[in-house]
């Protein structure tokens, strides 16, 4: 892969640092993701994966550094701002409102209107279409999310991120609470997103999932980019990098930005 052929990054993180009190969650992190690309972010617990996802999704504001979209600096000071710029996220805690039903959750904050009032019919149809696309087995889109299983909730959260065809989809541990079949569905979905030209940032600690879909794998360790692998990296290499058993290779900083 000769470098001049690579398209310009869609979303870039440059020198981003983030502290929570005395904890340095991210330290001078550089990451790029392009269209038609799945960028996986792995790391041990506390490596800063979710914080990085939060920065991209507008849930955390970095203390230092910047985020570039199409090469231009953007301010992601709220999830709504990120969403407006075409960056959608599925958070680890899913961020569903238990008392609202599936349709209400899917469209929360982006409801379809008909005049001044909500267009429930259009939203309900779109909800069924999306869920069918994800092969989700939700009994009724009018059931409160509280009554759904962990897997069903996950699918609802993923479906919500896909509404309005965002350019970048950030998935934080999307398969954590899923069974084998649903995990396969979500991974399939990620591949389809890539085919459709989306940039996907996939945060996970399940190395097996990543190897199946990732184009590149960034390993975070203690808040820093520890190493970068191609998607076909071996499980042992990833594990060694995640646990810090090997020193970061010289190519790290260059590759992450590639």
């Amino acid at each position: 892969m000769s470098e001049p052929l690579l398209p310009a990054p869609l979303l870039s993180v440059r020198g981003v640092s983030k502290r929570f009190g005395g904890v340095r969650a991210l330290v001078d992190v550089d990451v790029d993701v392009r269209e038609h690309e799945v960028l996986a972010v792995v790391g041990d617990n506390g490596a800063g994966k979710s914080t990085l996802a939060g920065v991209l999704a507008g849930a955390h504001r970095p203390d230092a550094g910047e985020v570039l979209l199409d090469g231009r600096p953007v301010v992601l000071d709220s999830p709504a701002a990120a969403r407006a710029l075409g960056i959608a996220a599925v958070f680890q805690e899913l961020a569903l409102v238990d008392d609202l039903d599936v349709v209400e959750n899917l469209f929360l904050g982006h409801e379809t209107l008909r005049g001044p009032l909500l267009d429930e019919v259009a939203m309900e149809r779109e909800a069924w279409r999306l869920l069918d696309q994800l092969a989700a087995s939700v009994p009724s889109v009018r059931d409160p999310v509280r009554t759904l299983s962990g897997g069903q909730r996950q699918v609802v959260a993923v479906a919500r991120a896909l509404l309005g065809s965002p350019r970048v989809v950030v998935l934080d541990e999307p398969t954590a609470s899923l069974g084998v079949r649903q995990t396969a569905e979500v991974l399939n979905l990620i591949l389809r997103l890539r085919e459709r030209g989306h940039a996907v940032v996939l945060v996970s600690h399940q190395a097996g999932d990543l190897q199946a879909v990732a184009d590149r794998i960034v390993v975070l360790r203690l808040g820093r980019v520890h190493d970068v692998f191609d998607g076909d990296a071996s499980y042992e290499d990833l594990l060694a990098a995640m646990t810090g058993a090997v020193r970061p290779s010289a190519r790290t900083s260059r590759e992450a930005r590639r």
């Binding site: 999830p79 709504a80 996220a89 899913l94 008392d99 609202l100 959750n105 929360l108």
Partner: peptide, 16 residues
Amino acid sequence: RAVGGDRRAAMLAGVP
């Protein structure tokens, strides 16, 4: 209803 039900989730979903 969303803010009253789960304020953080509502915020993350982009509710003002």
